[in-house]
Computed example of a mutant assay.
Amino acid sequence: MPPKALELGLACFCLPLCSHQFGKKLFFRRFLLELFPVQRSWLWAAFGGLATAAAFAAFHYSYMYPSTFVLLGVLGLIFAWVRIRSGTLWAPILLHAVAAVTGLLLNLLR
Rank of each mutant, 00 (worst) to 15 (best):
G48W: 00
V38T: 11
I93S: 08
K24P: 12
R83M: 13
Q39F: 08
L75E: 15
A45E: 13
Y63C: 07
K4S: 14
H20A: 12
G48I: 02
V82F: 14
Q39C: 08
A53W: 05
S41W: 08
S62C: 09
Y61M: 06
F79A: 10
V101N: 11
C18F: 14
A58F: 11
V74H: 07
V70H: 08
V74K: 04
A80N: 10
K25E: 00
W90R: 14
G48M: 00
R85F: 05
L89F: 09
G23H: 05
A11K: 02
T88S: 15
F69Q: 00
A97V: 15
A51P: 02
G48D: 14
R40M: 03
G9P: 00
W90M: 02
F13P: 07
P66K: 14
L32A: 01
M1K: 10
T102Q: 08
S67F: 07
E34K: 00
H20S: 11
K4F: 01
A5P: 04
A55M: 04
R30K: 12
S67Y: 04
F69W: 12
F22Y: 13
P2S: 08
K25Y: 11
F31V: 12
A97M: 13
V82P: 05
R110F: 06
L95N: 02
R85W: 12
A11I: 02
T88G: 12
A53Q: 06
C18Y: 12
A46C: 12
W81T: 15
L50N: 06
G103F: 03
A11R: 00
S62L: 14
C12D: 00
G49T: 05
A11G: 04
L33A: 04
T68N: 09
L32T: 04
F22I: 10
A54E: 01
A5D: 10
G76E: 02
L106M: 12
W90C: 06
Y63L: 13
W90D: 04
K24E: 14
K24T: 15
H60D: 15
L33Y: 07
P66I: 15
A58Q: 03
L106Q: 09
T52C: 09
Y61F: 15
H20P: 05
N107G: 14
F36Y: 10
L10C: 01
L43E: 02
F28A: 03
A55K: 01
L71T: 06
K24N: 13
C14S: 09
V82R: 03
H60N: 10
A46M: 14
P66N: 09
W90L: 13
L8C: 00
A57E: 00
S19L: 14
P3N: 02
L94V: 15
L6C: 01
A53C: 10
L35W: 10
